[in-house]
Write a protein that binds this DNA or RNA. Sequence first.
DNA 1: CAGTGGTCTAGACCACGAT
DNA 2: TCGTGGTCTAGACCACTGG
Lengths: 234, 234
Amino acid sequence: MLLYQEIRDYLFTLIAQDKTLKKLPSERELQEHFNSTRITVREALMRLEVEGIIYRQNRKGWFICPPRLEWNPVNKVNFYQLAKEQSFDANTRLVSIDCAALVGEKNQTITSAFSLNNHAEFYQICRVRSLDHRPVMVEEIYCQAEHFHGLAEKELTGSITAIFKDDYNVNVTAERSSIHVTALPESVAKLLHLNSGASCLKIIRQRFSQHKTLVDYNIEYWVHGAIEIKVDSY
Amino acid sequence: MLLYQEIRDYLFTLIAQDKTLKKLPSERELQEHFNSTRITVREALMRLEVEGIIYRQNRKGWFICPPRLEWNPVNKVNFYQLAKEQSFDANTRLVSIDCAALVGEKNQTITSAFSLNNHAEFYQICRVRSLDHRPVMVEEIYCQAEHFHGLAEKELTGSITAIFKDDYNVNVTAERSSIHVTALPESVAKLLHLNSGASCLKIIRQRFSQHKTLVDYNIEYWVHGAIEIKVDSY
DNA sequence: CAGTGGTCTAGACCACGAT
DNA sequence: TCGTGGTCTAGACCACTGG
């Protein structure tokens, strides 16, 4: 039996047995307990991290993942309602809203999704969403400035879809999502108080109006271990 | 700038610049190139692994991930058709088929999904699917033995859905999928020639017949970096 | 056989968090 | 200030792959 496997199994059992446990012993305590080194202890911890059982907060320690939020990308349910149904305390923090043209190679994808050139101005909204005071998702929203004058003055911690509908008469009627696994980029990790390089689900959503035009382009980074996707089809 | 970040960026550029590159330099070569240690080099490699850019084959080296298969869990398209549309060479290998009662705690979930007790017999099929000769998915299929007599004698490398329909007159009409990120279990990793602990997408699919009864229970492990999920909704 | 990654030891210094 | 994780060094032996 490999040593890091033994440590992993020990911690796994520890977590399974004590449902009230929130935080793991420190790396140095574990090192001593197993007469080993930090490298080996960390190997075990990183396995559990990939499994979505624990996560780390930068220099604070290793914590046990609470239950996941179940999310159906097909149902257009809003975040608060979904969280409430599953007994989570949901919260949204507006990080920034800017209005500018999109430059740079990365943004090229976005402007061309709107079939626009580099001069078009976009609102860029960045928000952090939390469940039970744990930040679990960072969202970047891009939409055309000319269609949403005054958006920056709205209350942007709730449903953007509702604002589009009520204040601008734009209905989101269709949506295309693309989902894959990747690592948290540095900037996103910082907002989540996590380490860059942690595994995450990146969801790109393009939402379309009743006129079939692209309303907004969203990039969501979900903390690995905080979400479970459910899809029904008939 | 952190050293492992530098190494990561160096490799990232290397991969971006040479699209024909299949395999990375060895860990010891990189260690020498950067005047560093294997631990640090491996830190960089593991970041790229989490990002889904490279993967490793047990003791063979680090390889660059080919393009991902785009998959829509809502469309009931079969694997070969999907692969062909995206110019992949698809293949399925039957690993095992058994017929037995399901015992053990892990299997409890499965029997109860069928609303059956521990004595009910199930066919258990295990298959490995490859794209362009790279194993990318392990699939475990469970279905009630009494409904599919003689299943073990069928050709099981193609579409199971087609066999259900053509040979047993059972049509899959609805499906419920649950998707989350986790680590490859040891047994699955071995079948994929990968290391246990690598990040993967675990997809659990429950498929229902025209009579609303559960036809089969599938567990799929997709190699991280081999799949991208696309969902449309209206 | 030589070369690869897999695992492990025994340290070190640093930045940041909690107090 | 002290404890935490974050990063890094400089080795070691082993199991397995490939020629």
